[in-house]
Computed example of a mutant assay.
Amino acid sequence: MAQKSPIHIVRLDAIHCPDPIFSSSLNHTLTSHLNTPPNDETIIKHLTTPKPANVAITTRIPITEKVLAACPDLKLVAAMAIGIDMIDLAACKKYGVQVCNVPAASNESVAEHAIALFFSLRRQVVRMHGLTVTGAIWPERMSLKDEWGELPGTCREEVVGVFGGGELGGRVANICKALNMKVQFSERKSVSASEVREGRVSFDECIKTSTAFFLTLPLSPETLNMISTEELTNMRSDALIVNVARGGIVNEEALVEALKSRKILGAATDVYVEEPAGLKNSPLVRAANEWSKDTSMSGRLVLSPHLAWWAKSSIQKLRTTVASNIEAWAGGEIKNEVL
């Protein structure tokens, strides 16, 4: 839209990051809510009172069809993130609402966090920490090597399977290659073995041959529960899974069962089906909490609270890009358009 009068911008969840850095030339008003309970009624209230929003900024607060129907003045949803799975794109199209995001918002820090999670699993950092800080077990036994289990390999023996061939997957792959790991990019699950693209391996081959998996792909109807009981059963017994993509790509209940039955060696995640994740709503949190008291399971499931993105470079890019997206839209252009 070409701006004629002040646009009203509503920020729904400022708890994650400081507000965008707008140019002084943008004629606007801004209401910034630290957080918004993720129910339609409260979201609608925040977007309509004390005055209707023209632009909504969201990081994780859902924008549903009910919200859009109740907010006729809303014309742009600006995701302060790369992920847009919390926005009903079909409904946005129906109501003529444009959507933009921040491409590669935090890929640098997320890739590094993914590698940190990998090493926390492969080198049993969490478990060894727990055994060491008791202050008694190591002095009593003189060595804790027998607590390790099978003698671990090093990076040159890893076969890394990357699900997601975008910039984030590429960053993870480059770090792995620099550490002398073999890297293979998986083809989409729906693609037959005879139609695999150059530079990729079939989904089934990747599942069966990789020693470590990195998930760096968006959540979509195609990727929902992409890895579940069948895939976990077909993995190597020494396999590790690292998810820095979105909750729901790996079936959480199936993952807990695979770890319990030792079908795979370990898993780490920064993302969950329901967030914030806690004992009441997350099978992963419940399992990790229970296993923290069991030395045979401790450290085999490593969790972080969706903060892989948290870094100076990420914050700067989020603040400047969202501002640029909104300013371009106000001037009749659209940047980083999703819809």
Rank of each mutant, 00 (worst) to 15 (best):
E253Q: 12
E187L: 11
K94C: 00
N225Y: 13
P20R: 04
L284A: 06
A193N: 08
V159I: 15
L232Q: 10
E290S: 12
V285P: 06
K260W: 05
S24N: 12
H33Q: 08
L224K: 15
V102I: 08
V97Q: 01
R286Q: 14
F185K: 03
V160F: 14
P103Q: 03
I115G: 06
P152D: 01
S296Q: 09
T58L: 04
G169S: 13
M142D: 00
P283I: 11
I44N: 09
I137V: 11
G153L: 10
L301F: 02
K93C: 00
E187D: 13
A81P: 00
G153T: 13
V159L: 11
N234Q: 13
L265F: 15
A79M: 09
P283K: 03
T42E: 15
I63G: 01
E112F: 00
G169L: 10
G83I: 12
L68T: 02
K4W: 00
L217G: 08
K280Q: 07
M142S: 10
D88P: 00
T49Y: 10
A311V: 03
E231P: 01
N35E: 13
V97S: 01
A330M: 06
P20Y: 10
S220L: 15
P72I: 09
C17F: 04
V183K: 05
E253A: 15
S24H: 11
T132C: 07
S190Q: 12
G248T: 04
I84W: 05
P305T: 09
T49D: 08
G83H: 05
L12R: 08
Q124C: 09
Y95Q: 02
A288M: 00
G331K: 14
E187C: 12
T321S: 12
I137R: 11
T49N: 13
H306G: 01
V99N: 02
E167W: 02
A105Q: 10
W291K: 05
I264H: 11
